[in-house]
């Protein structure tokens, strides 16, 4: 089937060229086009407002450890975008992962088929002891990532992923390690409910869904970003549980 691949190659090349062409447009006067690399202008765009945290209030200065009660309060601006300004996206994002997990659960419909164990009985000693050592450390690192999500790079998703890897390694190493299905679903549901609950609470008290109803404290403090840390904790648990669930299903299918 060489011929078919050739056509595919030609068409994808044409597609790539067209996309490339989009970057090489020389704008005529007054026209706006894609910015060159490194020249993304942020001023008088929404990004500028997010940086100055001045969407509702027209605040100019955000000083580390000093400016108080800003509208979003999280030092890590990406986190403020993810969990505060565009938290609806993140909620959508969580549901996508939740649906995927549910979908995989259905597809591999494990209830009736016998469960396969991945790890051999006598997996190598080094692996076992190493993972025994690493497991708690990974969990700790994960929790640090999502707890300090609003201060340092990282957040709910990344923390959850680290936790999931911890569990994955545990499952890889010894096959007696058994996570009961019920526990995963419980964690998932409670995390999901708490996230949506936070949003609904914001709706009830402040009038719009997912609105921040807690004080935002001073930038840089641990308790400084209103509901963002709570959202991130929920996200972390959810993502962690879901990824472990997905991995568990894939292993046992």
């Amino acid at each position: 089937m060489k011929f078919r691949n050739l056509i595919a190659l030609v068409i994808t090349a044409a597609f790539a060229l067209i996309i490339l062409q989009a970057f090489t447009i020389t704008p005529a006067a007054g026209e706006i086009t894609l910015n060159e690399f490194g020249k993304a202008d942020i001023n008088n765009r929404t990004a500028q407002l997010y940086l100055n945290k001045s969407v509702n209030t027209d605040n100019k200065k955000v000083i580390y450890q000093e400016s108080k009660n800003l509208e979003s309060g999280s030092a890590n601006i990406v986190t403020s975008v993810v969990a505060n300004y565009r938290s609806f996206d993140t909620l959508g994002e969580i549901t996508v992962l939740f649906l995927a997990a549910a979908g995989i659960g259905v597809v591999l419909n494990l209830e009736n088929s016998k469960k396969k164990k991945f790890a051999a009985d006598d997996s190598s000693l080094i692996l076992n002891t190493g993972i025994k050592l690493l497991f708690p450390l990974l969990l700790l690192a994960g929790t640090y990532i999502f707890v300090y999500g609003h201060l340092s790079p990282g957040g709910g998703f990344q923390g959850g992923a680290v936790i999931a890897t911890a569990f994955l390694l545990k499952m890889l190493s010894d096959n007696k390690f058994e996570i009961k299905e019920i526990s995963i679903t419980l964690v998932e549901s409670t995390a999901g409910i708490s996230f949506v609950g936070l949003g609904l609470y914001g709706l009830v008290t402040r009038g719009s869904f997912l609105e921040n109803f807690m004080a935002t404290g001073t930038v840089g403090q641990l308790f400084s970003a209103g509901i963002i840390p709570l959202i991130y904790i929920a996200i972390a648990f959810k993502v962690g549980a879901e990824l472990t669930n997905i991995v568990k299903n894939l292993i046992e299918a």
């Binding site: 909620l91 549901t95 939740f98 679903t185 419980l186 998932e188 549901s189 999901g192 409910i193 949506v196 609950g197 949003g199 609904l200 709706l203 719009s208 869904f209």
Partner: peptide, 19 residues
């Protein structure tokens, strides 16, 4: 009634469905 409930409520129900 705030229309976001149309998306929020099914979300909540979906999350609590296993329970």
């Amino acid at each position: 009634v705030n229309l976001t409930l149309i998306i929020a409520l099914p979300l909540l129900m979906a999350f609590t469905m296993p329970i």
